[in-house]
Design a protein around this nucleic acid. Structure first.
Lengths: 211, 211
DNA sequence: CCACACTGGTTGGTTGACCAGTCAACCGTC
DNA sequence: GACGGTTGACTGGTCAACCAACCAGTGTGG
């Protein structure tokens, strides 16, 4: 008999839960120590688990890292989709996407993971594929929001896909700068850049965005 | 008596030459194998030199890598300065900068070095400092070209520094995409993006740039 | 202008630390 | 009692850094 709640359920569920726990620990450890100096043992310690168990659930270290990146990427795109599914005008929805893009505070270092992943992706096709999907998700969603704005007559843009690529690229580049040299650019200035570039791309006045 | 040319000169010169040779080999090896899997022995082999010699000229591996990044960064900024020192209208000079930014072919993988450096810079303040100088150089030069164009009446832009930051950011982001997934964006499209964004920023028509 | 001691560059072998992945044994649950 | 999950010691291999010894120029005093 299962204990009241389905929390302690079948073994398959237990294994899934452990897998998820390991992926989560892997993400935290990699964020903290960097991919290059993350050891399997570190992830084991962060989970209070033996080193051998890691290799029971994931054949190799690469498997673990790749699975962690894929899981993180998928979560990110899912949240992004939720964000644009909400209500509001096209400008409001676009602004929400821009704000979601930018780390919410200096201590939010989630982008570090993608810096590591870019470097890794150069050599590892599997990682590159994950990154391509993640970037594709961002661009697609930006293009959707812009296209909808154009249809509603809020925006003016004859190439939403191109505009989305340019916006996404600029945000990538600026967020790297913000993450690496937080002193060189404030979050406020970064958001202002994003909004100005957006006004250029969708043909609306700066005043259409919040101050 | 020195042998005719100053080629084989004093010991200090010999040491400088060897240092430069090692830095160059380090750059080539890191580009080929990636920072993470570059061994001191690899650089030694690429120079036909013993492993010990590396540690004679550079106390630690980190020293070597850092010096290599600094040298590469300085060379890049120097070349960029030469490029804008040349003749031409502001549009021509700006276009030259944009074209210099973008890898000239699929086989030009020089950006891989900076992807690795970004990831490394997260943990290593010395590396971060080099990156800050490099990015600062790019932005400064872009801002200069834009400002001159405004003075000459060619451009219209009330915040050249902001425009330069946005352009630089966009190019960083798009070049990463181009470098990582060369299939996802052609060089032609990348250059087109750069020119379109530039027209937005400096208030000129697309036709001002070459097709 | 010639020894000779000295310095700087170079070698190759060694060392000690570290780490991914393996394995045999153990435990709790169905 | 069988099997999925877990342990932790162990192995084979890798690597940065160190070191002792060597050699080629260089400068100095005779």
């Amino acid at each position: 008999m299962r204990s009241a709640e389905g929390a302690r359920s079948s073994r398959a569920d237990q294994a899934d839960q452990r897998r998820a726990e390991l992926l989560d620990a892997a993400r935290r450890v990699v964020l903290e120590r960097g991919l290059a100096s993350t050891r399997v043992a570190d992830i084991a310690k962060a989970t209070n688990v033996s080193g051998g168990l890691i290799h029971y659930h994931f054949a190799t270290k690469d498997d673990l890292i790749t699975a962690m990146l894929r899981a993180t990427s998928e979560t990110e795109v899912r949240r992004l989709r939720e964000i644009i599914a909400g209500p509001g005008t096209a400008v409001q929805r676009l602004d929400r996407v821009l704000r979601y893009y930018i780390p919410s505070s200096r201590s939010d270092q989630s982008w570090i993971l993608w810096l590591d992943a870019w470097a890794l992706g150069v050599r590892e096709p599997h990682v590159r594929e994950i990154l391509l999907e993640l970037e594709g998700g961002w661009i697609e969603i930006l293009a959707e929001v812009i296209s909808e704005g154009v249809q509603k007559g809020e925006f003016f843009c004859d190439d939403p896909m191109g505009a989305a690529e340019r916006l996404d690229g600029m945000l990538d580049g600026l967020v790297v700068r913000y993450t690496l040299h937080s002193g060189a650019m404030s979050r406020k200035r970064l958001l202002e850049h994003a909004r100005i570039a957006a006004t250029h791309e969708v043909g609306i006045p700066r005043s259409a965005f919040p101050a």
